[in-house]
Nucleic acid binder design. Structure first.
Lengths: 316, 316
DNA sequence: CTGTTAGCGCTTTCAA
DNA sequence: TTGAAAGCGCTAACAG
């Protein structure tokens, strides 16, 4: 029934009387147009999907809040799915883009190899968020992780750090860039890293503690530690404190993300603020452009500005 | 093309030769069957949706991990969407169930009134998780919040608490039950509450701090505080410590959830462990039953066992 | 302004 | 075992 459809979609070519009658019937029957039929006909869903390994990181939830708000402004629904770091599940979710279950995809922490991401991104609407493949063929939004790590490492050095350690995460793209920034700042200051420790699996409070335990057990004690996340830094601070040493008196500690944990930690953590919410919005806007302008395949990256937040954990 | 469809769906009524040929073509063309067409024809999507206000709570992400794992075992994809506490967005997402975008719905922290939930849940596949409406008409999975709060309050009393305060959250269904449990334990011990404070808006670290500041400013200082979440309890501990008082020496503090923050806090927080992951699994299993067995409309609740976890924050 | 109709891409029944 | 064809519920083009 054409008229019903017209009423549903707010077409102006309907008389007030018909509109009234149809609207009444719709209410009466509690009728909802079937999404699959409409999607099939229109060849779009007005839905997008955002993928991440886990949801328990403050950066993820904040970034996805930005995605969701921007999506809502453009009339899209944004759905979220965790991959649990399992390639099969990630594949299944990426297939939702391929088979038209959603119109666009935002990838936060992919397990896929860079060239697979590239392959999907060149054909369909994909935007990478925070964790961006090295290749410039696909498009991504992030901070300049290398520069940010350089900045905070330089701050540690300026605050008197001479024997620097880093607890990082080579499994993540951003983690590798952060290591580069760390090395860069050290090289520039004529220093060499005292320790470089990397989480094997999880990159969380517990691994922060156990890696710091290693650090403290070594014969070359650092005077400053740069951790790749606030959560890990919180574990690091806790382990140092429990060992009877003081932060920052004996060892200064810096984190990354400026999540609530940077504030909760005692002492408060010096860290890098990522504008996660805005990154999410920008990511959606880029995706929107890609979805709506047929030829638009943006490449490369957009960097959003980060900010060094100095708290007591490095006030030597 | 019937044969193609038969190959895609693994029908046995296909010759090996055809199967080979079709599979080859599918690979060659990188063909994926369009979801909307299949969903329309089959009248189901093999997708479910899980709603929550925010994603930044550890309980939410853990519970949804359970939902996702159980869903994957049954061949379902589980999607997640935050409502931001906005009724319109919640409506739009619930409409995804009504219009067949998904086959089932798990509601974590609804904004909707109980009777609206009831109305949807009696007609369609809905399961409530953690936050369950008072009405028994719909089905939900949770711990026994009232009993759990009774247990931890009783522990505070046994540990020497006489002047008890609570920082709660009347905006949430579980929050109201926790208040009941608190009052119940006090009444049984012949005590009356010293303070009952409630977060207006957010129920987080900052509100924990500011409500505790009120508490400390009053002329009747409590000797024990029960907080409705670990995050709030962490804020409470921090405020007490910053004021120069000791936890638990001067004031004992208890949290709720047994999230990572209970461990990160100094001193470690006594709290109630919710089996969030299992609750998620059980919720999906109930939803699955509802989706697959036509007449199955379960009512009432399933309670999963909670556990009192005692740490230093109450060791008087 | 409104009713009729074709057709989106898939699954499934029916014949062959 | 396979091809042909109907039809899921919707939208959009068309004719009236």
């Amino acid at each position: 029934m054409g008229t019903v459809s017209r009423v549903l979609n707010g077409s102006p070519a309907v008389s007030a009387a018909s509109k009234e009658k149809v609207a009444g019937a719709i209410r009466q029957l509690n009728y909802r147009p079937l999404a699959s039929a409409r999607d099939l006909r229109r060849d779009r869903t007005m839905r997008i999907l955002a993928l991440a390994k886990n949801l328990d990181s403050p950066i993820v939830s904040e970034a996805f809040r930005g995605v969701g708000d921007a999506a809502a402004l453009s009339g899209y629904v944004s759905l979220i799915a965790p991959t649990a770091g399992e390639p099969e599940r990630e594949q299944q979710l990426v297939d939702m883009l391929r088979n038209g279950s959603v119109d666009g995809l935002i990838m936060f922490s992919p397990t896929m190899a860079d060239d697979e991401i590239e392959a999907v991104a060149t054909q369909m609407s994909v935007v990478q968020l925070c964790e961006v493949a090295d290749s410039e063929a696909a498009f991504g939004v992030s901070i300049d992780d290398r520069q940010a790590s350089y900045d905070i490492t330089q701050h540690l050095i300026k605050s008197g750090g001479r024997k620097l350690a880093m607890i990082g995460n080579r499994a993540a793209r951003s983690g590798r860039l952060r290591e580069e920034g760390f090395r860069w700042a050290l090289a520039e200051a004529g220093l060499s890293p005292e320790h470089l420790l990397f989480a094997d699996g999880d990159f969380n409070f517990h691994s922060g503690r156990s890696l710091t335990r290693e650090l403290l057990g070594s014969d070359r004690l650092p005077d400053a530690v740069f951790c790749g996340s606030d959560t890990v830094a919180a574990g690091c601070v806790r382990e140092i404190t429990d060992a009877g040493l003081r932060v920052p008196g004996d060892i200064a500690v810096a984190g990354f993300d400026d999540s609530i944990q940077a504030e909760m930690c005692v002492p408060g953590l010096t860290t890098i603020r990522q504008p996660a919410y805005d990154m999410g919005r920008v990511a959606f806007d880029a995706l929107f452009e890609r979805m709506t302008e047929p030829g638009a395949h943006r490449r490369g990256r957009t960097y959003l500005p980060h900010e060094l937040v100095v708290r007591d954990s490095t006030k030597g």
